[in-house]
């Protein structure tokens, strides 16, 4: 764990693995929730770092961090959501070719993976979801699309993401969801927050099994989706 100075009131804590990053982020949220973390404006997890900004005394926290015993996270700690997906994306065949499997097998592998939101960015409500093993990582498209529709389920590098609104994008599109990822007039506005567990549930396509579970069309599966919202404001 390497804390790097960020301006006068920030720290960027660099870690070696995604798992350590996730564990530190969870620990920071836990300490913020129980009031043992000094006041902080932003806690922004990313691929291998957690940014803390708005600290009164970043040096003090740097010293304190070294004494923390940070438990590894277990899947049961995290809130979960299911996102119904029609696996009808224009790049499904390309992804199947990259994986060396049939499109049906892409659906099976993707919907059989438990993802979690490593971090958010790019646009409000856009989560970078990890969970696919390395052999299933795919490059971005050579030529980005000028318009990717809202609800597009996409792959790039180690990540799966769902476009919260129409925007340009270079990820490989494998499906579509009607789930609303971001609604600023909803509480919480973001369906996906760092740490949220996500499963994609195949819908309405021949050759795949449609799993229906009451009350899970786009909402909480278990736990409480608000849990991940408890970062300090």
């Amino acid at each position: 764990m390497r804390p790097l100075p960020v301006g006068e009131h920030g720290l960027l804590i660099e870690l070696d693995t995604a798992g350590e990053t996730e564990a530190l982020h969870a620990e920071l949220l836990r300490r913020a929730a129980d009031g043992t973390l000094p006041p902080v404006r932003e806690i922004v997890p990313a691929a291998r770092t957690v940014l803390l900004d708005g600290l009164a005394d970043p040096r003090g926290l740097t010293a304190e961090l070294a004494t923390w015993d940070i438990p590894a996270r277990t899947a049961g700690d995290r809130p979960g959501v299911e996102i119904p997906v029609r696996y009808d994306g224009p790049d499904l065949a390309d992804v199947a070719a990259l994986w060396g499997v049939t499109p049906d097998e892409v659906v099976r592998l993707h919907s059989g993976t438990e993802f979690h939101v490593a971090f958010c960015g790019f646009a409000p409500g856009f989560g970078y979801l990890t969970g696919l093993p390395e052999p299933l990582h795919v490059p971005r498209r050579d030529t980005p699309r000028t318009k990717v529709p809202a609800g597009a389920v996409a792959l790039a590098g180690p990540y799966t993401g769902v476009y919260p609104r129409a925007s340009p994008g270079g990820w490989q599109l494998i499906g579509t969801t009607d789930t609303v990822l971001w609604d600023p007039h909803r509480e919480p506005a973001a369906l996906l927050a760092p740490g949220t567990r996500v499963r994609f549930v195949p819908q309405d396509l021949p050759g795949t099994t449609v799993r229906e579970r009451p009350g899970t069309a786009s909402g909480a599966l278990s736990g409480d989706t608000r849990r991940a919202e408890e970062a300090p404001r």
């Binding site: 404006r41 932003e42 806690i43 922004v44 997890p45 940014l51 900004d53 708005g54 971090f119 958010c120 960015g121 790019f122 646009a123 409000p124 409500g125 856009f126 506005a189 973001a190 927050a193 760092p194 970062a231 300090p232 404001r233």
Partner: peptide, 9 residues
């Protein structure tokens, strides 16, 4: 709207 950076805001 500080405090929402972790959601990409």
């Amino acid at each position: 709207r500080p405090g929402h950076a972790h959601l990409g805001v």
